[in-house]
Write a protein that binds this DNA or RNA. Structure first.
Lengths: 209, 209
DNA sequence: ATGCAAGTGGCAGTCAACTGCCTCTTGGTA
DNA sequence: TACCAAGAGGCAGTTGACTGCCACTTGCAT
């Protein structure tokens, strides 16, 4: 899904943007989330000015880099999941794929977080698919009926945030995914309070991302 | 619980530190999480150098400011909770107090997060009390038996992270607290994967906080 | 193949977090 | 009360994110 601005990019510019994102992931992985943008630009073989032209600040860059990683791992996972007989297992495997990537590239995640990015946006492009999988699981009674689509990005955001309470490369987050899945079960369902909108009007001031 | 360094502070220095924290909370609330440290120092009536002498960087300052806020609201909540007949309700009310504060002072929370602080540490001082309350709830069978003390700070961290997916001043987090509490119920308990240690060895490099 | 809009990137500059240095002030103890 | 370690804070400097300016290059539509 190309945005308006992406649609207009010249091929060399698009290639550069792609390279910058990939470099960001590699440099963050090597040098940690505090890696300098100079280093990323150099690694990508472009000038720092080009990096800033494409990604207005570190938050946008790090989030885009994270999105690139998630896209690579979640797209095939979703394809698989849509064919799965058991919709709960299917949903589980998509979450698993996203979390595994997040844990593996936790430095990129940390860079995005530290720059103030709204992490849950990173799975925004898969909102529709997650919603579909959720609805299927609800239809066969594997997930409580009062779940709404907005719940899924939030559950992902919660799981992401766990990584800073443990060795981020570990799979300790699985314990809490299990806990949350128990909460999603129709069996234990205390009626949920109303859902509030996902991120309201753009925040005041000139915030990055 | 004064640390070694706090124990040695001269009374005027302690008063200044206190003032700086309170100023940080006020300035963040007014000017947002990107408020400058200059402004905070000025608001506290101290020089910038004094602010940095006491709090080596923005992450430490923001986290300490958040801890001050949490301390003010959680201490009385815990006192009440320890007297409560229903240990699950008691636990709930402590979490409620902490989350209400976090939502109210979300700018301070955001400043800490953006500076790279490990947010779950902010409830570290109440670890013991939370553990006690959890154990009580387990003893009367209101909470699944395989919960461990480390789970509670992590649940708090997950709830904190929700605030960036909604109007942070709203109480939309209650929906997910409810969801998690369902997951904590002994009824729905799928056996949980092992717990991994809370934040392993101090992170490599010279990270703040 | 050629013209131009789109893209590139060096350089100098701003801004905020943070540090070193050094002198002046002050709480609390002998 | 007099001393001194502890604290305060001004100032100049460093670093990294980010911007404006501008001359140079290059896809690509005609």
């Amino acid at each position: 899904m190309a945005t308006d601005s992406e649609r207009l990019l010249r091929t060399d510019a698009a290639r550069n943007a792609e390279r910058i994102l990939r470099s960001a992931r590699e440099v963050f992985a090597e040098s940690g989330p505090d890696a300098q943008l100079d280093e990323i630009a150099q690694h990508a073989g472009v000038g720092i000015r080009t990096l800033f032209r494409r990604f207005p600040n570190k938050a946008v860059l790090a989030k885009a880099a994270l999105e690139q990683g998630i896209a690579e791992c979640i797209a095939p996972a979703i394809e698989q999941a849509l064919l799965d007989d058991d919709p709960l297992l299917a949903l589980n495997s998509v979450i698993d794929a996203a979390m595994s990537l997040a844990a593996r590239e936790h430095n990129t995640l940390a860079a995005a977080r530290n720059a103030g990015a709204v992490i849950s946006d990173a799975i925004g492009p898969y909102y529709a698919s997650l919603t579909l999988l959720t609805r299927r699981a609800q239809e066969v009674g594997r997930i409580r009926a009062d779940l709404v689509p907005d719940d899924m990005p939030r559950i992902m955001a919660m799981l992401f945030s766990l990584l800073w309470t443990m060795d981020p490369a570990s799979d300790g987050w699985r314990r809490y995914l299990s806990l949350i899945l128990d909460g999603l079960s129709p069996a234990a369902a205390t009626p949920l309070p109303e859902s509030v909108p996902l991120r309201p009007s753009p925040r005041p001031g000139n915030w990055p991302i």
